[in-house]
Design a protein around this nucleic acid. Structure first.
Lengths: 237, 237
DNA sequence: GAGTGGTCTAGACCACATC
DNA sequence: ATGTGGTCTAGACCACTCT
């Protein structure tokens, strides 16, 4: 049995995306929805809060909930966190080339950040090619206790689906940092940098549900193809 | 009377920041907190969900809520939306210089995006100087129906505090976009760009509670001083 | 005054972790 | 078996908007 508030959320998203409930119109009131879905008001409110957090509606006290259209903008690298979402976005018409796959050498700093008790840390370097140009350099580091096996084949498809699907690991939270750096020798070797003198770096720390650091990722983008969109709600109260 | 779940949230944040509840320790259980704060469990859960969303704790089913330390990293330009937060961050040891203040000319595109029925749209250009260098160029556009008066003095201090405090407007949500562009003539005139050939642009659309677009802001940063941090939780379920 | 969303309660059952 | 967080209920009162 699916969670009730999620089925209601999914149903409303479907109706909004299918224009059954058009942008700039009001949703039925919370009391009306409790009747339609035969549930309690708090459950309806959980569904509506999800819609609000994800940018589908704006709730207005005393009036109702209005459908907004922030979603008409695409979300290339948004405030994600599901691996499935991430992989969907990264694989939009892009070709992946595995450049390196193995364990890190002992002198690399990242080994200290990931769990210190382990002997080996996976290191994967991949380039993303979009319409014939190598635009993105992805460097992934995994704890090999949680990810025992990693093949070139897995890396060419989706590491994320493998981790969530095959390994069944659950992500707790992630912290992302965006900075601009000068290209390294490695960037110049693996990317079609042309004349660009800067590179946009997205550093991502991924933690498991038990709060242990599980993965560190650097996604290095050519600046002309980089775009980040973020949707934020006002602080509660 | 302050909302109960907010006072509980504030109290727990204070205790976490004051190390009274140290990082990597468990919070009291939800049932215990209902006794401590003399309230219902759902109210406690609202407070804990806020803590979780803001990166203070990680909830683990069957075990409890653990205090995490994502907040040890500073949040220079995070996924905020309160004007007070924004202004606090922007004014950290920075000097503000108002370069231009007036109404836009008719040919500027932004006039179409903001409400079309109005005759005038405020345009403010300011530079932020940090340790003697002009690093950030802020271009703000306001609807003059909601912001009738704007002086150089207000702009030099905090426009945001003026809007929330004096005008009493309530922000609904915001959409932020980050891209990298080549510097314009304006950038070169107002900023200490030295040799940099790229500029990081944060485009911000701010909407009021009634979903009308109220402000558009471009914050143009020299790439070497730019840093963006984002904290994200996993999708519910 | 009627209708809306925001907060709060007291209780219930469930899934999961631990011992 | 006990304790934890996750979901759900049925009802209450409040602040706000609109007519």
């Amino acid at each position: 049995m699916q969670k009730k508030y999620l089925t209601i959320y999914d149903d409303l998203v479907k109706k909004i995306k299918g224009k059954e409930i058009p942008v700039n119109t009001m949703l039925p009131s919370e009391n009306e929805l409790t009747v339609q879905y035969e549930t309690s008001r708090e459950t309806i409110r959980k569904a509506l809060n999800l819609l609000s957090q994800n940018g589908y509606i704006q709730k207005i006290r005393g009036k109702g909930s209005i459908v907004i259209d922030v979603h008409k903008f695409s979300f290339p690298v948004s405030g994600i966190v599901s691996y499935k979402e991430l992989s969907k976005q990264l694989h939009l018409s892009s070709k992946t080339i595995v450049q390196e796959l193995g364990f890190i050498k002992e002198d690399e700093e990242i080994g200290k950040e990931l769990d210190t008790t382990l002997e080996h840390v996976w290191k994967v370097i991949r380039t993303r090619e979009i319409s014939g140009e190598k635009i993105i350099l992805d460097k992934d580091y995994f704890n090999n206790q949680q990810v025992p096996i990693l093949t070139k084949d897995i890396c060419e498809n989706s590491i994320y689906e493998y981790i969530e699907g095959q390994l069944g690991l659950t992500i707790g939270f992630a912290q992302k940092e965006i900075v601009v750096e000068e290209p390294t020798e490695e960037d110049r070797r693996y990317l079609d940098l042309e004349g660009f003198s800067n590179i946009v770096v997205i550093k991502n720390h991924v933690y498991l549900e038990d709060t242990s650091l599980f993965q560190y990722t650097e996604s290095r983008h050519r600046p002309d193809k980089f775009r980040f969109i973020d949707f934020a709600r006002r602080i509660q109260g």
